[in-house]
Nucleic acid binder design. Structure first.
Length: 480
RNA sequence: GGGGCUGUCGGCUAGCUUGGUCUAGGCUUGGAGACUUGGGCUCUCUAGACCCCGGUUCAAAUCCGGGCAGCCCCA
């Protein structure tokens, strides 16, 4: 075993394992600037898949893509006080252009509410102009000073941000929910990452929002990772940016708005959740390469026959919708290739050797179970298609099971602390809805309320901290 | 926000405590070739490094200061 592969076990040194998987599978690399990363072909291809899937979904529901500039005048950012307070510590500024000092410094967007909404004010006059449902794929900069992690926390990251304006609160509520459902579909059914869905508390909500909904996943090290957020902004921004319209009754009204986003950090979640000691394990639906074919020639046996069989199978799969690569490089041994492609997370490997040729079969190897299956050549396309689906659901089911196992229900604060310290995960507890208790728990344990279920769960005890009457069941965890 | 650790060929590292044959060693990778191919084969040849800036000293990979970058722990 050389250093080409992963040299630590996921279960023994999770942090080191995570870094190695990303670097060695060539998903990403470090950039020369602190906290910045390079998305290499492998991770960018995954991101493109995600874009494809999500674009199709939101376009079906009337959203369109746009691009707004990355520079935001300071005065714009300051208009909504809460928003400004929330982002100011992390904003990177441009103060000089060429050799002249700028009159007003420009923020490099940490998010685009302000620049987009100042423009929405121009575009919206009448109820006929509504709704506006725009999305953009871009990068944002948040100048993290704490330690940064590849994909999870970087100073610049890729994301999509959707920004809508509606005539009524109900419509905006509906939009928040619709996007939340779209996110759930992408994250669970494509990335195979199961999530808890709910609202954020006042303390955790987006700066400037009326309320925030979010999707939270649980990582193998017991920490929760936020996979996406969808905010009801109310009229907070429309009032400060003066986004008004005349309704059908000729009455002037402020619009109701939403914003929502998910970022490349979800790729990090996928890596952590599905990867193993051999490296990456990609869910078939987002894997840039779903199948790799490795011919196994022997000297003395007719190598040409094996080559041509491999090509034939390759062609057959290419004609279907399966994304397939034929690795017929002579310089590497089959064993070397097995390891290399497993490291990259390819879901299915097809081996074709003398034994297979003789029996008119191919040998399939599953990345998720390491199982080897012999298949009749003629069944390849059908069987591979079926198997890809099976691997997809196997990955999700496994992760779902571990999510469920990570949730511990507690009634007392002692239990809370004990379980939280020992294994992390989600702690399900009753809460009095008082921010003071939430704050104390965070100070004393580091756990925050990750989510308040949308459909209230049945109260089963007093508030876990203060012992007063509880108002809701919530999920605590340490956050990434 | 606080504390700690680290930085040597592309990767992993030896050397640093006690400055001096270090002209920086090994493994791996990269390049050329041979031999092979059902789990990272083997052999030959070859290329490749002391993070940056400053200081101490006859002499710095080694000691000191600063910077940059990475990692860990606590809040």
């Amino acid at each position: 075993m050389s250093d080409i592969g992963i040299t630590v076990k996921k279960s023994e040194d999770f942090s080191e394992w995570y870094t190695q998987v990303i670097l060695k599978s060539e998903l990403a690399d470090y950039a020369p600037v602190k906290g910045c990363m390079i998305f290499r072909e492998h991770s960018y291809a995954i991101w493109e898949k995600i874009q494809e899937i999500f674009n199709a979904k939101i376009k079906r529901t009337g959203h369109r893509n746009v691009y707004f500039p990355m520079f935001i005048p300071e005065s714009f950012l300051k208009k909504e006080a809460e928003h400004f307070q929330g982002f100011i510590p992390q904003v990177a500024w441009v103060t000089v252009g060429g050799d002249s000092q700028l009159e007003e410094k420009l923020a490099i967007r940490p998010t685009s509410e302000t620049i987009m909404y100042s423009t929405y004010a121009k575009w919206i006059r009448s109820w006929r102009d509504l709704p506006i449902k725009l999305n953009q794929w871009n990068s944002v900069v948040r100048w993290e000073t704490e330690s940064t992690r590849l994909f999870l926390r970087t100073r610049e990251f890729l994301w999509q941000e959707g920004h809508t304006a509606h005539a009524t609160k109900e419509e905006a509520d509906q939009e928040v929910k619709e996007i939340l459902d779209a996110y759930k579909d992408v994250i669970e059914n494509y990335l195979a990452v199961p999530v808890l869905i709910g609202k954020k508390t006042e303390r955790e909500k987006f700066a400037g929002a009326l309320y925030t909904t979010a999707l939270e996943a649980m990582m193998p090290d017991g920490k929760a990772l936020q996979m996406g957020t969808s905010h009801q902004l109310g009229q907070n921004f429309s009032k400060v940016f003066n986004i008004k319209f005349l309704d059908k009754n000729e009455k002037e009204r402020y619009v109701w708005q939403t914003s929502w986003g998910f970022s490349t950090r979800m790729i990090g979640a996928m890596v952590m959740l599905h990867g193993d000691d051999k490296g990456l394990m990609l869910p078939p639906k987002v894997a840039p390469i779903q199948v790799v074919i490795i011919p196994i020639p022997y000297k003395g046996v007719d190598a040409k026959v094996i080559q041509s069989r491999a090509r034939e199978i390759h062609e057959r799969l290419q004609k279907s919708t399966i994304s397939v690569v034929l690795d017929d490089r002579a310089e590497y041994t089959p064993g070397w290739k097995f390891n290399a492609w497993e490291l990259k997370g390819v879901p299915i490997r097809i081996e074709i050797g003398p034994r297979d040729v003789k029996k008119k079969q191919v040998t399939l190897a599953r990345r998720d179970t390491s199982e080897r299956i012999a298949l009749k050549e003629d069944d390849v396309v059908n069987e591979v298609t079926k198997l890809l689906e099976e691997i997809q659901s196997n990955l999700f089911n496994r992760a779902k099971k571990s999510l469920e196992e990570s949730i511990a229900t507690v009634e007392t604060y002692d239990e809370f602390k004990e379980i939280f310290r020992k294994k992390g995960g989600f702690i399900r507890a009753c809460w009095c809805s008082n921010s003071a208790c939430e704050e104390k728990i965070k100070d004393e344990t580091g756990a925050t309320i990750r989510t308040v279920p949308l459909e209230k769960e049945k109260i089963f005890s007093k508030c876990v901290y203060c012992g007063e009457e509880a108002k809701e069941v919530v999920y605590f965890a340490k956050a990434y």
